[in-house]
């Protein structure tokens, strides 16, 4: 085989792979959208489950939609309180030698930890402090899951801010704290907000970590200490039943979740553009 033919073959294979991958992923979306739309109704979005909902009678998943937003919102907020300072603390301006090295290592470990392990860990903690499955326990567990993700994304964005900018701030006599909280924050705010959105969309889609920490309920979320429904778990429970009408609802619930995730990623792009106006290139 001469070199031209080999190249042609290789390109053919690569194109085939790329199109294959795209095709399969498009097929997934098509199935979810088509199946979901045919099972969708207004009552799915606006109503909570009525009696006999899991036997195919009246109702919807409004409680799960609201529950998911509470869970993901609470977790994102909690994780924001830790991630922002931590992301700045990891920069070399605040470097503490060994400690920085070990906390990077720890973050790598936490970043890779699967959500089911966070679920189990959250469950141990719940048992220890005598908390039962609740919105609060779900929020805490999800916050554990998304904090490493948010921190890593933010740390990278801050590190990528132009060195000259940091040096200029320093030359003007700003302390590390002042330059971080004014110049660098302004420069990176668009990126930081996309990190927040990333964490939110991870939190809203995760099922394994809240399976036993958030529990499930058929009512709108009430207090922080009550169990709360969530969309991923609604999909999971609905598809696990043998009743066809209920399985149909799983398709509709999955479509709702899919649309939320899609909207979040669009919103995140918009926020990035909107808040990147003060960026100095």
């Amino acid at each position: 085989m001469n070199r031209r033919n080999e190249e042609k073959l290789a390109i053919g294979l690569m194109r085939l792979s790329l199109y294959g991958v795209v095709l399969i992923l498009a097929a997934i979306m098509a199935v979810i959208v088509v199946k979901g739309f045919s099972a969708m109704s207004w009552s799915m979005i606006t109503q909570t489950p009525k009696g006999g909902f899991y036997l195919g009678k009246e109702g919807g998943v409004a409680n799960a939609i609201v529950g998911s937003i509470y869970l993901a919102g609470g977790a994102t907020f909690l994780s924001l309180l830790i991630s922002v300072p931590l992301a700045f603390a990891l920069q070399k301006e605040y470097s503490s030698g060994r400690l920085t090295y070990y906390s990077r290592l720890a973050l790598d470990v936490l970043w890779g930890t699967p959500s089911i392990v966070y679920g189990a860990f959250g469950f141990i903690i719940m048992m220890m402090i005598g908390l039962r499955s609740s919105l609060l326990a779900g929020i805490i567990t999800l916050a554990l899951l998304v904090t490493p993700i948010m921190t890593r994304a933010m740390e990278e964005i801050i590190r990528m801010a132009p060195q000259e900018l940091k040096e200029t701030a320093c030359a003007l006599g700003l302390t590390r704290l002042e330059s971080s909280s004014t110049v660098i924050l302004r420069q990176t705010i668009g990126g930081l907000l996309t990190a927040v959105m990333l964490a939110f969309s991870r939190a809203i889609g995760d099922a394994a970590s809240i399976l036993f920490t958030a529990g499930f309920s058929d009512h709108m979320p009430g207090s922080l200490l009550d169990p709360v429904a969530s969309l991923p778990l609604a999909v999971f429970f609905q598809i696990s039943t043998p009743i066809v009408e209920v399985q149909q609802r799983a398709y509709a619930s999955a479509l709702i979740l899919f649309i939320i995730v899609l909207l979040l990623s669009l919103l995140s792009r918009w926020i990035y553009l909107k808040f990147s106006q003060n960026v100095i290139k």
């Binding site: 931590l86 603390a89 605040y94 400690l99």
Partner: peptide, 25 residues
């Protein structure tokens, strides 16, 4: 400058927090 030193202390605390969480897990 004392505010700045305070931020250094806080940074250490947050770095420790990350290590502690992983160990605790």
């Amino acid at each position: 400058s004392s505010l700045d030193s305070l931020s250094q202390v806080l940074a250490r605390i947050f770095l420790l927090l990350a290590v502690a969480t992983a160990l605790l897990l």
